[in-house]
Amino acid sequence: NIFRVLGDFSHLASIFILLHKIQQLKSCSGISFKSQVLYMLVYITRYLDLPWTSSPYNFIFKVLFISSELYIIYLMARAYKPTNDPNLDTFHVEFLLGFAGLLALLFPYKYTILEVFWAFSIWLESVAILPQLFMLQRTGEAEAMTAHYIAALGMYRALYIPNWIYRYFSEPTHKVDTIAVTAGILQTILYSDFFWIYYTKVMRGEKFKLP
């Protein structure tokens, strides 16, 4: 459906915006390395089924997400390392890993490796933006490209919510994926404050600056 396709392309667009920002400005300042590593972990643990993916659409996106994330991490850790300031990226990710690990172990759909890792990846993704938002809060402002990146990344999961509603009514089984939906709503709520400032500042041509 249209919401899901828009969501997936928003996700892909966010990655292109981030890569464009890093290469255009020859800098990864303002980007949380910790959030990027968390996303890498999200892709690895969710796409363990990559070799068995039957849909070409999903297969291409999975490969694109994994490979582009690897490239982003390479750029931040090697090519543009001097522009990456660890002193601003101080969020304690062990809390996020503990949160996702605990929920994945307590409430997986099934106790299989694939299912537990899948649940872990869903919960981890829901909070993986926090080191990035925390960094933004410390610096108090962001380059336009960084703001566009976060907005597109947040829009992706927000668009999955109408997709789930649409699927609930259009598919005969009327099933709800409680893990994905709960985590998706949590993820979108975490972005809400950012979305508001993005809407009131950046979309009106102003700089992204916290009040």
């Binding site: 899901r4 997936d8 996700h11 089924d49 849909s55 999903n58 996106f61 999975k62 997400f65 759909y109 899948w118 999955y160 997709n163 598919e171 089984t173 099933k175 994926d177 994905a180």
Partner: peptide, 10 residues
């Protein structure tokens, strides 16, 4: 199964 169908999402 229901959630298998949802695994078709990214």
């Amino acid at each position: 199964g229901s959630k298998e169908e949802f695994k078709d999402e990214l």
